[in-house]
Write a protein that binds this DNA or RNA. Structure first.
Lengths: 119, 119
DNA sequence: CAGTATCCTTTATGATACTG
DNA sequence: CAGTATCATAAAGGATACTG
């Protein structure tokens, strides 16, 4: 197997990077890091996500082995999403990403204003 | 100002996170971390990126204050892109993200195979 | 070289309605 | 509750041609 290298178009890491460098994925995994969360709970906590996007993103994360879906046979059904061990290996990086956004948002907005002023 | 919180739909950090949680941005900043790189050099090194996407992503990164564009009045013109100090604050996190993809690609692909087998 | 402009196709996403 | 299915629309992206 060739060395993984996201700069090559056909390298699988490129695909994974694309999946993982995703706004919703970062937000969802951030909510799961403290324990399992149910579908509608995620929906409530992530403002602005549609049911479709949440469902789709969760399915992709499950397929990639980052999230474990568990359905309990209650009536109506209860479904919990939790991080897998593999998913947990991403939490630090994703935390860093969210924190970066929170810490540097002021600088970014200031830069945007400067940029837009000139143009 | 309210506390930055990407889980709120109208929070500016959500927008920044979206910009920064981007495949092309991660790849571009990765190439810039060792020094300025020219437009077509980036194009060659990032397989599969179109001129349009490169141009667009660079413009966004410049607007956000992460990248500095410098044009030299040669004929034809020479343009260099370099990280700003703000952009440099992202390199560790982005390195981590690319490395995660490279390290865990095997596990992800295996998980995908298991998932697809059942379905 | 380093783009921009335009057209066109493909994807992504949202809204709505429905189901076990 | 936790989804899926369908339709409609907006946004993303590629190909091509052109320019200082």
């Amino acid at each position: 197997m060739t060395t993984p290298n996201p700069y090559r178009a056909k390298c699988a890491t490129r695909v994974v990077l694309d999946r993982v460098a995703d706004k919703w994925a970062v937000l969802i995994l951030g909510l799961l890091k403290d324990g399992p969360v149910r579908f509608n709970q995620l929906r409530r906590e992530i403002e602005g996500i549609s049911q479709k996007m949440l469902s789709q993103t969760l399915k992709n994360l499950e397929r990639d082995g980052l999230v474990q879906r568990t359905a309990y046979p209650t009536v109506p059904v209860t479904v919990e999403y939790a991080l897998t061990p593999l998913g947990r290996t991403l939490t630090d990086t994703f935390d860093a990403l969210r924190q970066w956004a929170e810490i540097h948002i002021g600088e970014v907005v200031a830069a945007q204003r400067r940029y837009d002023e000139v143009a």
